[in-house]
Amino acid sequence: MRNFIILSKYQTLLLSRNLKSTLIGFSLPILMFFIFSNLLGQYKVEESNLSIVEYLVPAYIPIIIINAVLVIFGQQYILYKEQGNLLKYKLLGLTSFTVAASIYLATIVFQLLASVTLILFAFLLKGVVFPFDNTLSLLGGFFLINLFQFALTVFIVSIIHKSTTYQPVAFMLFYYQMFLGGLTFPPEMFPDFLRKLMYIFNPIIYGLEIMRGVWVDGKVLFSFIKEISLLISISVVLIIISILLNKKNKNTL
């Protein structure tokens, strides 16, 4: 446990040293909120008759998560594998899981800081109020999306073994989830056929529904049993496949 804490602090320090690129990624949702809250502020969601601005923050927090896990954590993790650092740490008594968890924990810290910054910015700019009564449900949704992104990242890393290949794939999936997952524009603005495809090919929309329902509608986390079950099931399947692929690769070597 002590080694894990020390390594987590070290990984956080590494992210801090690369603060410029980290801030660029995490400032994207804040910039998007500034643009779209002014651009779409006069429009309302027909189903609730609420301003679209109310729906932006719970949609942009998942963007922070995707960037942190898929792009930052994934890139760091695959670099460790590619450079043989996982084996070096293993010789020091640290398992691959411990190293991966320490890298991941460092991104969680930055996720929380970026999310709080976005929430404060939205409140100061547009008066968007944080639903304090539903904080636990929001945290539940936050970690469910993290679980899905973690599983997706581990799955990709089990297939791709070069950081130079991983980076463009990670960015492609980042933008795919952001633009075609209802995170940039509310799903209600999409044509019906595209919305149906989103529910089949872009599971992030289930995380979005949880965050929106908890934030805007005041529902509790367990009002979304179907969405929770789907996110957990997909995540478990991706992790199991990743484990099997890693074992196959080791046997091949």
Rank of each mutant, 00 (worst) to 15 (best):
T252L: 13
G141N: 07
L139P: 02
N38L: 10
K196G: 11
S158W: 07
Q11S: 10
L50Q: 14
M178E: 08
H161E: 12
L136D: 00
R195Q: 15
S37N: 09
I234G: 02
L70G: 01
L39F: 14
N249P: 01
T135K: 02
L15D: 07
L152Y: 09
S96Q: 12
I66K: 03
G207S: 08
Y206C: 03
S16P: 03
L230Q: 03
P168A: 07
E209I: 11
F179V: 15
Y166H: 02
S235F: 02
L244F: 12
A114M: 12
V71T: 05
S242R: 05
L144S: 03
L40K: 09
V236D: 04
N134L: 12
I160W: 02
V71R: 00
Y89M: 13
L105H: 01
L112D: 06
F193C: 08
T107R: 00
T117G: 10
A170W: 04
A68M: 01
Y89L: 10
M189H: 07
Y166M: 07
S158V: 05
I5F: 12
L138Q: 04
I204M: 06
S115T: 14
F33E: 05
S137I: 07
T164C: 00
F130N: 00
Y10W: 09
N3S: 12
L124V: 14
L147M: 08
V237S: 02
S163F: 01
F110L: 15
I160K: 00
I228Q: 08
I52H: 05
G41I: 10
N134H: 15
H161T: 13
F185N: 10
P58G: 09
Y55P: 06
L39Y: 14
F121W: 12
L105F: 15
F97D: 07
I5A: 11
A101Q: 09
F130E: 00
F36A: 07
V99C: 01
T165E: 12
V214T: 11
A59N: 13
L50G: 03
I64Q: 04
G127V: 10
L23W: 00
I24K: 03
F201Y: 14
Y43V: 05
S115D: 06
F155N: 00
T22V: 14
I232G: 07
P58Y: 11
F150R: 01
H161M: 08
V237P: 01
I78S: 02
T153I: 02
N67I: 11
R212W: 04
G182I: 01
F121V: 04
G140H: 00
F132S: 13
S163R: 04
L79Q: 12
F33Y: 15
I228W: 04
F142N: 08
I240R: 02
F224W: 01
S27A: 15
